[in-house]
């Protein structure tokens, strides 16, 4: 099988195939579609956090030793490696740390209307502490790092205790101040 490509050192050839070769049965192949489901219990920190979202609240956890307010919250601190100390209710406003304007869906299929996505640091948490979410009510031209934003919530009856209980973050009216 092995036949070297000309020249030193050791490069081995391979045989290129395309999707077309497969679709048109030009090569032999076999096929498999996995069917499997998962359910994840949410654990202590995320259960409380997501229950908070259902009530329209963003909750954090304090680490007194590191002087940090953690969002997303966790029951232990990854740096001082001790238990975190207390729950704290934060505002539903924040600052865009970074963002992207995506023309790809999750299967890398092309989409016409882009998704605005990014990381929001939440007011009241430590600097650069926040989570990923969508942005709305702003154009691709308006969005910028440092932009002040506020959560737009689903109506209480539609909330289910998920990160998507927040629909997206919109520009914060009344300015850029924290």
């Amino acid at each position: 099988m092995a036949e070297k490509i000309e020249g030193s050192p050791g490069y081995a050839p391979g045989t290129r195939v395309s999707t077309k070769d497969i679709v048109e049965n030009k090569i032999t192949y076999t096929w498999w579609e996995p069917e499997v489901q998962y359910s994840w219990s949410l654990g202590q920190a995320m259960s409380k956090f997501l229950t908070g979202l259902k009530k329209g609240k963003i909750l954090g956890r304090t680490c007194i030793k590191c002087d940090r307010v953690l969002v997303p919250p966790r029951m232990f601190c990854e740096y001082c490696y001790g238990p975190t100390d207390a729950w704290i209710e934060l505002k539903d406003t924040g600052t865009i740390e970074t963002y992207s304007i995506s023309y790809l869906d999750s299967d890398a299929r092309r989409i016409k209307k882009p998704i605005l996505i990014g990381v929001i640091s939440i007011d009241g948490a430590s600097p650069q502490h926040g989570f990923m979410h969508y942005f709305g009510e702003m154009s691709e031209k308006d969005i910028h790092i440092g932009m002040r934003v506020k959560a737009v919530w689903k109506s209480p009856k539609d909330r289910e205790g998920a990160i998507t209980d927040i629909k997206y973050f919109k520009p914060l009216e009344g300015g850029e101040k924290k």
Partner: peptide, 9 residues
Amino acid sequence: ILDRPLSPN
């Protein structure tokens, strides 16, 4: 929990 519900790429 936090990322997949947003259908990320």
